[in-house]
């Protein structure tokens, strides 16, 4: 671990008017290594999605941000889509219902890689193959409603990585999906991140998922970072009582891990 990709220092986010509002995030310090995989876990309302949106600079205009997000691993300020890929929770709403899959998968590549229409189409085809969409040629001309939830999420992932970003932020990428297809999406993310050498920031409430996919874990509660550390240490010797409770309530040792670490 040399220079980190990303350094978050003293980050606070407040929604709405400052006096009445509560902090969505307060004084967070966090690093992500180049090529690292960080899982951010916490219950709903813990501020984990706010963190993801803040990193991608997608917070709504009424959000007030303090502190700094620096990208030492990058020699310029990051561009959404070009440097950061973002996968949303529900592919049913994160894909535009009236645009073709081909257009939605390739538009990031056209914008950031300056591809021609034809080259963008080839790129989209290649991406759909990589995320294992059957009959990708036909899928280019199809629309989101013609695919199942799992396939839609694969398409959304293909669209997010279209411009070869350095880091992929996945915000609960499996929680809107059926149990059966969740494992497939996790395997896909694992493979893509390894093959592309991307960093991964996985937002999840599922500590089992985090343990299988990430090499570091950050635990959030009520907008604060409770504890962070490499996955093995954090799981075996949690320093914080809240982390311990999360582990105890989530990991059932008889159930297999979603993927084998390693």
């Amino acid at each position: 671990m040399s220079k980190p990709l990303l350094q978050v220092r003293d980050l606070s986010v407040v929604y709405g008017r400052r006096n009445a509002a509560t902090h969505a995030l307060s004084t967070v310090d966090l690093d992500v290594a180049v090529g690292g995989r960080l899982a951010v876990i916490g219950e709903s309302g813990s501020g984990k999605t706010t963190l993801a949106l803040a990193l991608a600079r997608l917070l709504p205009p009424e959000a007030v941000v303090e502190g700094s997000i620096a990208w030492p691993g990058l020699d310029r300020s990051p561009v959404g889509g070009r440097d950061i890929g973002y996968v949303f929770q529900d592919p049913g709403s994160s894909l535009n219902p009236v645009l073709t899959i081909g257009e939605q998968v390739s538009e990031g590549a056209r914008r950031h890689l300056g591809l021609s229409r034809g080259a963008a189409k080839k790129r989209a085809l290649e991406l759909l193959e990589r995320v294992r969409i059957p009959d990708p040629e036909a899928a280019l001309r199809a629309y989101p409603h013609q695919f199942s939830g799992g396939q839609r999420q694969r398409i959304a992932i293909a669209a997010a990585i279209a411009a070869n970003p350095l880091v992929l932020i996945a915000d609960e990428p499996t929680s809107a999906l059926d149990m059966v297809v969740q494992a497939g999406i996790v395997r896909l993310l694992d493979r893509l991140v390894r093959d592309e050498g991307m960093s991964l920031i996985l937002i999840t409430h599922d500590i089992a998922l985090a343990s299988g996919l990430a090499d570091a874990i950050a635990v959030f509660r009520d907008g604060r970072l409770v504890e962070t550390g490499p996955t093995p240490q954090l799981l075996s010797r949690p320093a914080n009582a809240y982390t311990r409770m999360l582990i105890n309530s989530h990991i059932d040792f008889t159930s297999p891990r979603l993927i084998e670490a390693g």
Partner: peptide
């Protein structure tokens, strides 16, 4: 959500407004 996704892709504002929002 898909507008947020389009913004996350770093698309030009013009394209987001015309292609993603106005079209719908």
């Amino acid at each position: 959500d898909f507008v947020l996704a389009a913004r996350a892709k770093g698309l030009a504002r013009r394209r987001i407004v015309l292609r993603h929002i106005a079209r719908n």
